[in-house]
């Protein structure tokens, strides 16, 4: 199934929950609203033509430049992306989904942006979402067990956010 067909089909199925796509990219991707991600992934997994049953990876990407001059040149507004890489063990094809989120929920600094968890669709999403939460600071609502996974439980901040600053000191260990 070609990319444009797929986008058309998903748009028909989910209407406004499919907000865009980039089919010219090296890995063509489809943009989904946060509200639609659970339904879309479940549809992609169960659809007999697609059968995207393997969730390879969930990545959180922070788009933010602290320097205002550089930020203007960047060509995008600050935001956070969650990227889902899916593939099919049966049909041997792959798909990339993206969810665009504000950097902070409702623009309030310190409130993590929210996206529904797909741990109910793919069990592997459980740990991947924990990792994204831990490192990139995205809150997955409805996640069964959203805790830090790589950093210690009392770690402050989300290291892969671009405005993250290493703490000066952690339990008596010099940080910077």
């Amino acid at each position: 199934m070609s990319g444009s067909n797929l986008v058309e089909r998903l748009s028909q199925q989910f209407g406004e929950k499919i907000t865009g796509s980039n089919l010219e990219a090296i890995d063509p991707w489809i943009e989904v609203t946060p509200q639609g991600i659970v339904e879309v992934t479940r549809y992609l997994r169960d659809d007999p033509d697609l059968q995207l049953n393997l969730l390879n990876c969930i990545t959180g990407v922070d788009y933010f430049i602290a320097d205002e001059k550089k930020a203007k040149k960047a060509g995008w507004d600050p935001h956070t992306e969650v990227v889902y890489h899916l593939s099919s063990t049966k049909n041997k094809h792959t798909l990339v989904l993206k969810v665009m989120l504000p950097r902070w929920k409702d623009g309030v600094e310190g409130e993590l942006p929210e996206v529904p968890s797909i741990a109910g669709v793919f069990s592997t999403a459980n740990w991947h979402e924990r990792e994204v939460f831990d490192l990139s600071g995205v809150m997955f609502t409805g996640h069964p067990d959203l805790r830090r996974i790589l950093c210690p439980e009392d770690w402050i901040g989300h290291p892969l956010r671009k405005d993250y600053e290493m703490p000066l000191e952690y339990h008596g260990i010099r940080g910077r």
């Binding site: 390879n56 990545t59 890489h85 592997t124 740990w127 991947h128 990792e131 892969l160």
Partner: peptide, 14 residues
């Protein structure tokens, strides 16, 4: 801008 490593053992361990 961003580098990500999807590790196989990570998923296998889960």
């Amino acid at each position: 801008w961003r580098v990500r490593a999807r590790s196989s053992s990570f998923c296998n361990l889960s």
